[in-house]
Nucleic acid binder design. Structure first.
Lengths: 201, 201
DNA sequence: GAGTACATACCGACTAGTTGGTTTATGCCT
DNA sequence: AGGCATAAACCAACTAGTCGGTATGTACTC
């Protein structure tokens, strides 16, 4: 890790906070600067454009997300099925934690939906973050199936797609309702259904 | 129906088209006007602000959606369970149809996510459209359960919440991927799981 | 002539991005 | 160690353009 300069770090943090809440277009560069306590000159020293900020924000956010998840999960179990359920535990805890202060939400999903037509590069960036997460989860599901339920006929990639869509959609509706319980409930619902085809240990 | 003036109709159609693709903030009033072949004077004759346009757009869009759905469904069956599955058929057909030309998407979800912090009135508008849809579906599910699977222990409201979140999230990811197959697949997945707790006739 | 249905021209506010500079840290030579 | 060149880090003020909204005018109808 090259240890980011403090002001750049502050700009990234402010950017995440603002864009998470208001999206890309409604977040002004000036606002990011004043929120970070930094001037505009500095901003354009670290980022060549607003779009560049968003692009770096996606990486920054995704790294933070993975970090928190890893922290909650601890050492990932050897067994892929255990890994699946430990991951779901961690996801549930992360959501519950986010629900405690405001609504759980995801910068990648928020940006993807807003800019998918006008900013194809940002869209691709979001998309590849989605795919990485899906691939990881689908991989664990496939390995778990092979090891513990080889006769079951369920499609790991299909379940992983379903999982991500469900989370993203739940957060969207949670924002509209200003109530995050739907995220928690739908996650629990997903888990229960998965347990029916892949019984936990 | 009070038969809208032609220019207002054109403004509404252009508004739906543009905001569906680019969202609220990235859609300029001037753009809506030129897309509708109408001047700005006319725009502000029919709408008192851009936000007013968006508000009317939500109603316009929701009415269109319901209209198309009713067209596909035909006369809703008496039996609530049949209504549930005829509705799911229709939803699948609508999605397939939308997938044929571009990505299926929903103005209510798009707007809700983008403006939920800055425009509370629009957010509430979106939210109540969500709730209406959920309530309708949950009502049918509850009636179907009472009539055909009274012993089953599944929560109609929970399934309706799950359905809407899944659809919205699938469309979000479909946009990021520029591939709508996830919407189709997740809908089929949902249907299969529902059939397990509420077997169709 | 009063109201409806537009059209045109315009304004103030805001926004992304630039410029031209100052300060601060770093490495090097003596 | 002390001085100095160099570059990285940072800043305030400005610019060009865009956007939502308004003021004013006009043609037509009742």
């Amino acid at each position: 890790m090259p240890e980011l300069p403090e002001k750049k770090q502050r700009l990234l943090d402010a950017g995440v906070e603002l864009m998470l809440a208001k999206g890309y277009n409604a977040t002004a560069v000036d606002e990011v600067c004043s929120c970070a306590g930094v001037t505009k000159g500095s901003f354009f020293y670290y980022f060549k454009s607003k779009e560049d900020l968003a692009s770096q924000l996606i990486g920054h956010y995704d790294a933070m997300r993975k970090g928190r998840l890893a922290e909650i999960m601890g050492v990932p179990p050897e067994d892929p099925r255990d890994r699946v359920y430990v991951f779901l535990d961690a996801a549930q805890e992360m959501v519950a934690c986010a629900a405690a202060d405001g609504c759980p939400c995801c910068l990648v999903g928020t940006l993807a939906q807003e800019i998918h037509v006008d900013r194809p590069e940002l869209r691709d960036e979001c998309c590849s973050r989605f795919e990485a997460e899906i691939e990881r989860f689908a991989g664990d599901l496939a390995a778990a199936k092979a090891a513990h339920a080889p006769k079951a006929s369920f499609d790991p990639k299909g379940w992983a797609d379903l999982f991500l869509a469900l989370i993203q959609g739940s957060m969207l509706i949670g924002k509209a309702r200003q109530d995050s319980s739907i995220v928690i409930n739908n996650l629990a619902h997903f888990r229960a259904q998965l347990e029916a085809v892949l019984p936990p240990a």
